[in-house]
Structures are given as C-alpha cells and as structure tokens.
C-alpha cells in the first residue's frame, strides 16, 4: 500500500508529509520498493536497467547516470554493467534491483526479505547500504524472517501475525510488552505471537 501497489479499504497513508492516497505520484517519487524476487529485465544490462528506472522516475539523465555509476561501483557491478542480466546469479540480480531502487535517491526504502538467497558478501553489502541510508536520514522498512538480522539492525521492530501488526517498538519495548527482560528477539517474538494465537482461539 505504501509503495502504491494496493489500495487500502480505509485509513490514510502519509509519507514524509505527503498524502499517498491524495497524491500518489508525489508519494511514489520518494519511495523505493525492493521485492524478494528481484524485479529486473533479463535482456537489459544493469546500466540500461538503471537508465530505464531513472527515466520512469523522471530523474535528470546526467544526475541519474552519475548516481548509477556510483551505485554500480559500490555494489561491485561495474565489470558487468554492460552485460545482460540473464546470466546473473541471485545475488547479482538482487544488487541490480537494489541499485535501481536507489538511483532516484528515495527517502523511504521498503525491502522485502532483501537477504534471501544472497551470499555472505552480498548480504553484508545490502546491510551496509541500509545503514548508510539511515545515517543519511532516510527511512528503511525491511521485512525479514531472520530475527537476528532485525535484532542487530533495526531501530524499531514491528511484529506481524495473522496479517496484523500485533506489536511495535524498540527491542526493549517489545521485551517489556512480552513480559521478558534481556531475552533474544526470537524469544520475544515467539511469546508475542503465541499470545496472539491464543487470543484468536
């Protein structure tokens, strides 16, 4: 819904003060969404793909190209920038998708299971990218089933169960909510979701 792919039945969505339902185009301009399955075109090269995405987001060509070259270099894709993506590994595809998400310099980045299928090196790179964006003042929302990653990386954590947000806050706040102190996120998560299941029953 925040990325503009689904329409809510009710409620409002505000992204950095922009009403996403009233003005979806302006909201999309500052949002990037990276799916767990990289959304790229096999027959385009990373360079062409970034040019296409920059064109879609209406980014000035010169500025976009400079950003694209920086991103490709940062993600170790420069040697492959003029090769078609069809022969790329999952990790390389994910990096191309990540570069495309950043080429328009979004302020909100939504990542769906960004570490799935990545090798250790690529996973670290993705985590670095996220930390860097947060340091710059952007917002990163990441979904993950790897709770250790959430525990180590996230400032605030939301716990989803049965399609609902059942808890949200810092790790300490969640621990308090679960009535546990000093335990891992995994323990906290299991306590919260078990309580929710019991409530549903």
């Amino acid at each position: 819904m925040v990325a503009g792919l689904l329409k809510p039945d009710a409620g409002a969505i505000s992204i950095f003060g922009i009403d996403a339902l009233e003005n979806p185009t302006a909201a999309k301009q500052i949002v990037a969404w990276v799916s767990d399955e990289p959304m790229i075109y096999e027959r385009l090269t990373p360079f062409e793909f970034l040019e296409f995405v920059a064109g879609l987001w209406g980014v000035d060509a010169k500025l976009a190209e400079a950003r694209a070259r920086d991103l490709l270099a940062w993600l170790d894709l420069t040697p492959h920038m003029h090769e078609r993506c069809e022969g790329f590994s999952k990790g390389m595809r994910q990096k191309v998708a990540l570069a495309s998400a950043l080429v328009h310099d979004p302020r909100l980045i939504i990542l769906d299971e960004p570490l799935t299928g990545l090798d250790a090196g690529s996973a670290r790179l993705v985590k670095e990218v996220m930390r860097e964006r947060v340091r710059r003042g952007d917002t990163v929302i990441m979904t993950t089933h790897i709770l250790e990653v959430a525990e180590r990386m996230a400032d605030r954590i939301g716990v989803m169960a049965h399609g609902r947000l059942i808890a949200e806050g810092t790790l300490d706040e969640l621990r308090r909510q679960a009535g546990q102190g000093g335990t891992s996120l995994e323990d906290t998560f299991l306590t919260l979701t078990a309580a929710d299941s019991a409530d549903l029953l």
Binding site: G4, L5, V53, L56, W57
Partner: peptide, 8 residues
Amino acid sequence: DLIASAPI
C-alpha cells in the same frame, strides 16, 4: 510491481 510503484 516496479512499473506500478513508479511515479507515473
């Protein structure tokens, strides 16, 4: 989804 999430 990429196209749908573009500001167009």
